[in-house]
Design a binder for these strands. Structure first.
Lengths: 198, 198
DNA sequence: GAAGAAACAAACAGGCTTGACTGTTTGTGA
DNA sequence: TCACAAACAGTCAAGCCTGTTTGTTTCTTC
């Protein structure tokens, strides 16, 4: 009674966490189609029975993975935002941070889910909602980081364009590495932003 | 000898064309994972034997589809570019044309192949090469349409940013329809371009 | 300490996909 | 006209994936 340390629930959490992380890893390494439940359980070091115990169907697992990825992305972004320099070069640093995020493994996982959701009815709802929410958060954060004033006409759209740009850069990066070109584009974009924001 | 009309080769071409168009249709409607060879042959109205005759393996079919999609995109872009208005609003019209292309079904098919290629070694090479080539063509075309002068510093990067931006907008459009937001972003971006290009 | 629940393990059946294989028709060149 | 090759048709087996089922261990609670 007094020793309510609940090691069982802890184990449960740990197992679920391992499964979700394995799922994300499979998405990054093998794509959505290559992410079979057997592969996930092997990668997680969890028996197939245990897996089915926690996530009765593949849909359950994938839905949970969608939420996990969304949370991870939010976390990564906030962490990266916290260590940005002040003063000159701030704009470029913000863009660099965004560019890094949209070329990170967790973005690759999100991209796989995003594209898979395009032709998977039950997935689409969840992905759309979470992505919209994350998008709003990211927008708000970027406005703040750049010191933008959304009451000025056009300023809001410029921030949106910034996020669409880095998404496009992220997509371009999935096949060939593109960091040199990306850096040049972001350099130029920083000039545009500094002229039109703040 | 004189009647070398070759109807056999014509039929061959027609069958291959039907198979490729069916493949693209499946990619758009069911995604890469949902594009099975049986589904493609049914959709094309081609027997499984005939399919295997023209494309011995699925990889052969998909590779051919990649080339087909790339050609289609080039064609669509050039056609759309041909009917652009001159004079005021030209910049916005170019952006609208690009935005339309990157939200079209053929772009969806390309996106499916793009993402699938991320975790498919033989596909990756072909997709990367063709996309790079198409990217160069599109860049060249956009420079011309906007009347940009790439010798001026930053102008080249501005055009690249434009293409990355519409790619990002296209990706955002895959799940939820986004046309209103897209229009506002492109309105704003047209202002930036007109200030910085030409 | 004993009953019951949660976590884990593993075998199994059903469905789907791919490509190999065999057979048939149609067109081409001699 | 005849031989040959290309196009087309359909069946079959092997493999993988999913989810169900049955059994075992570990923890909690009375």
């Amino acid at each position: 009674m007094t020793t309510t340390r609940v090691p069982q629930e802890q184990r449960s959490r740990a197992t679920r966490r391992r499964l979700l992380e394995a799922t994300v890893g499979c998405l990054v390494d093998h794509g959505y189609a290559g992410t079979s439940t057997t592969l996930v359980s092997e990668r997680a070091g969890v028996s197939r029975g245990a897996q089915l115990h926690h996530y009765p169907s593949k849909a359950d697992l994938v839905l949970a993975a969608v939420r996990h990825v969304s949370e991870q992305r939010g976390l990564e972004l906030r962490e990266a935002a916290a260590s940005l320099p002040q003063g000159a070069g701030r704009t470029r640093a913000v863009l660099g941070m965004l560019g890094d995020h949209f070329t990170s493994p967790v973005f690759a996982a999100a991209l796989e889910l995003w594209v898979a959701a395009r032709s998977d009815e039950p997935l689409r709802g969840e992905v759309a909602e979470l992505e919209q929410q994350l998008g709003r958060d990211t927008h708000r954060m970027t406005v703040e980081l750049l010191g933008a004033d959304e009451s000025r006409p056009g300023e809001r759209e410029l921030v949106q364009a910034t996020l669409d740009l880095v998404r496009g850069l992220g997509l371009a990066n999935t096949i060939g590495d593109d960091s040199a070109r990306r850096a040049r584009v972001l350099d130029r974009w920083a000039e545009v932003l500094e002229a039109g924001v703040g």
